[in-house]
Design a protein around this nucleic acid. Structure first.
Length: 128
DNA sequence: ATTCTAACA
DNA sequence: TGTTAGCA
């Protein structure tokens, strides 16, 4: 279960999440306002997303492509537990290089579990 | 350089 | 949703 710790560990900066999800900062912040995601905040008020957050964001993105509105998305995601992210100190966001390494291991474990095909589908493009 | 909030020619 | 202003 050590993976849950990692997945709830806040380490993604806004910029990284934008690249990872293809969503705009505006959208990401808007979804947070609607409590679709609950990223942590650094001492400087910067958002720090966990892998769980990115996962939900990708879910939201796919639902958006399917033409589901915010209310609908809320319904779908409300059925999913909202594990709170772990508190984060003042640490700077993980470097992109280390981040990619982490994502790679995530993709491997995800495949190992046959889980979240979404993650593989959406993020695999970063490893081609 | 990056992200944040608030607001709208 | 985009975009921009003014901060931190």
């Amino acid at each position: 279960m050590d993976n849950n710790v990692r997945r709830s560990m806040p380490l993604f900066s806004m910029g990284i999440v934008q690249k990872l999800t293809g969503l705009t900062a505006r959208q990401i912040r808007y979804y947070e306002e609607n409590e679709l995601i609950h990223p942590e905040r650094t001492a400087g008020n910067r958002r720090v997303f966990s892998f769980n957050d990115v996962d939900r964001l990708l879910d939201i993105k796919s639902l958006l492509d399917e033409g589901v509105n915010l209310a609908g998305i809320r319904r779908v995601l409300s059925e999913k537990p909202v594990e709170a992210n772990r508190p984060v100190e003042d640490k700077k966001a993980m470097s992109e290089a280390d981040l990619m390494k982490f994502l790679k291991t995530e993709l491997v474990s995800a495949g190992k579990f046959g889980k979240s095909s979404l993650i593989q589908g959406e993020l695999s493009r970063f490893f081609k």
